[in-house]
Design a protein around this nucleic acid. Sequence first.
DNA 1: GACTGTTTAAGGTTGT
DNA 2: ACAACCTTAAACAGTC
Length: 294
Amino acid sequence: MPRPGKSSYSDQKPPYSYISLTAMAIQHSQEKMLPLSDIYKFIMERFPYYREHTQRWQNSLRHNLSFNDCFIKIPRRPEQPGKGSFWALHPGCGDMFENGSFLRRRKRFKVARAEPPPPKGPQALHYYQHHQQQQHAQAQAKMAAAERLPHYAPYGLQPSGFKHPFAIENIIGRDYKGVVGGLPFASVMHHLGYPVSGPLGSVVSSMWPHVMDSGPGDYGPFGVHMKALCSPPGQTLPAVPLPIKPTPSMPATLSLSPQHLCPSTNPATGGALLEHGRGSESKGGSLQSVEVHS
DNA sequence: GACTGTTTAAGGTTGT
DNA sequence: ACAACCTTAAACAGTC
């Protein structure tokens, strides 16, 4: 059994694929696009595991950027000198992780044949900005509706508009200072009245203390606002990525009821976020294998 | 030279 | 069992 103690779990491999990590980094940026070096930086800052063997995982990450249609390359403008292009998320890639597992996508995002691939070259920026504006407009409309119909808010904000599971309000809430539908993130979450605490936070914080927010407050594991850990009623998509595999600090025998996860959530209507995979640890798979140094 | 981006290949893991 | 997905490695070309 793993022994938490003098060696923390900070060097554990996070339960995210490179696609997830990259998407998190991009979503975390204000412009929703980042150069490669900043993606590296983001990952290394938050996940100490990736401060080592940089050549290995960075090669993999570059492979993913090129290989997956969910990432689009946006050339630098002349006034933005530097190496490499910016990378952004394809506007249509939001439902890749609809099963709630950020370890493995249900389906690979691929640009449909009928849909022309994102333009390359200078046009890519316009393409990207156009989609950004569209999404912003949709979010504004939803917030306006929520203001008029408060009971609509928990629904209107998320399910249909829940395009990016990597959205910073869902994943990296700690540093998020942006807006949701034109409102400050914090006030939106407060408006929704999500529950804050519960044993889940301590469970996950013991798993990845390095990504915990150090200060008191509503932020939990991964720097995620704890309120975002609970799905609103009727929402099937977990709002935050949780490891789908038991880990040394979260044994398979651990059971958390929906009430534990979301004390104020009706168990009958949702709230169960943990999704256990196959019970046993498997060898070899880099995502499953969790090295614990004692 | 270092970094970035693309492509191919192989092997392991997971979902159906 | 099979297909799809993920990770890793490596080669190569282009750019800064």
